[in-house]
Design a protein around this nucleic acid. Structure first.
Lengths: 192, 192
DNA sequence: ACCTGAACACCGTTCAAGT
DNA sequence: ACCTGAACACCGTTCAAGT
């Protein structure tokens, strides 16, 4: 279960790193804007130690959710195998929705990561999954070709901004349908 | 040009209020997360004075952008008169995009205001404008009926999250087309 | 190599004291 | 009735000093 991150950290450093991630995971789940100082304190390390491992909040959050993001991304090919492409896409969006709701802190970070160069690291798999799903749909002739995965993710970003009312699932469903309809073949070109 | 906000503030209070709004407008345009303390200082008032007029950041931002929001809302009926409904909707989205880009600080606040009860005050006109546009489109048979204005605004929220690259207009255009296609009549019901 | 924790500049927010 | 500005608890971040 222990992971060698960069290669051969000193034993105590590795312990600190793991402990910080563990604490951060809980703290961020409880409140997505938990302060770094408070996380450090809960982890029993000085603030300097936290900053040594994670130079900024974004780096920490990305590290915390790395595994979850990977799991989400990995589900894409599975869905494609088990469902028609369009259904797979829609189902994956559904997972994305639930995912983004629980790990609430991730939303902003994901977007921030898009614009910066560091897409490849943690955020890349998400783009990869969308690419895969879009391609499958294209090949089946179910959606119009030429959509950019990042664009699609940007549009679907509303999922993270639906408030936690009790009908959020219905709302998310309706809005996902709206987007799906926009992606589909059959929507006309320009004008009425 | 001076506005009686709540009714009969004392003269110096009114001056302070105006001055704060003026400074805040510039400061927020320069950096959407300018601190309230720094705004108070630039306005030449103590922090307490700022808090007396605006109990929190949200209240200040809403007050600052009140007029701009109103102007945006007012353009909706004009567009409807001058264009076919679907074009009007699309054009209005375009204005919303430009608007949201310049007054960058407003984006989050708008969303925050949606969930809280205070929609009516500053945010209401936006919903009103969308309602108007959607209704015109429905009556022309151009879009499917039953869309919730808040839902539409939520989806279109990606406009505020497109980064300020030089092709953002093209990107925004593509994504708006996507949404428009989802709204249109002609998009099939369920399934491939 | 790595950790500690005091320290810095700053944040939002409050409130006694003034006029 | 309104304003001032010191004060509080906290934030992110740094860095000398320790082991």
């Amino acid at each position: 279960m222990t992971q060698r991150q960069h290669e051969a950290l000193r034993a105590d450093a590795q312990q600190n790193r793991d402990r910080i991630l563990e604490v951060a995971h809980d703290a961020l789940a409880a409140s997505s804007d938990a302060s770094l100082n408070s996380i450090a304190k809960k982890a029993g390390v000085g603030p300097g130690t936290l900053y040594r491992h994670f130079p900024n909040r974004e780096a920490l959050v990305l590290a915390v959710y790395r595994h979850d993001v990977q799991r989400l991304a990995d589900s894409a090919p599975v869905l494609i195998k088990e469902h028609p492409p369009l259904d797979a896409l829609r189902l994956w969006f559904g997972q994305l929705a639930h995912y983004g709701r629980i790990k609430h802190g991730l939303a902003d970070v994901l977007h921030a990561a898009t614009s910066d160069g560091l897409a490849g690291e943690t955020y890349g798999p998400v783009t990869g999954a969308i690419t895969l799903l879009l391609r499958a749909c294209e090949e089946a002739g179910a959606i119009r070709p030429g959509f950019d995965p990042d664009d699609v993710l940007l549009v679907v970003g509303f999922l993270w901004r639906i408030d936690a009312t009790d009908d959020w699932e219905a709302r998310a469903g309706r809005l996902l349908d709206l987007v799906m309809d926009g992606l589909r073949t059959g929507a006309p070109g320009p004008q009425t």
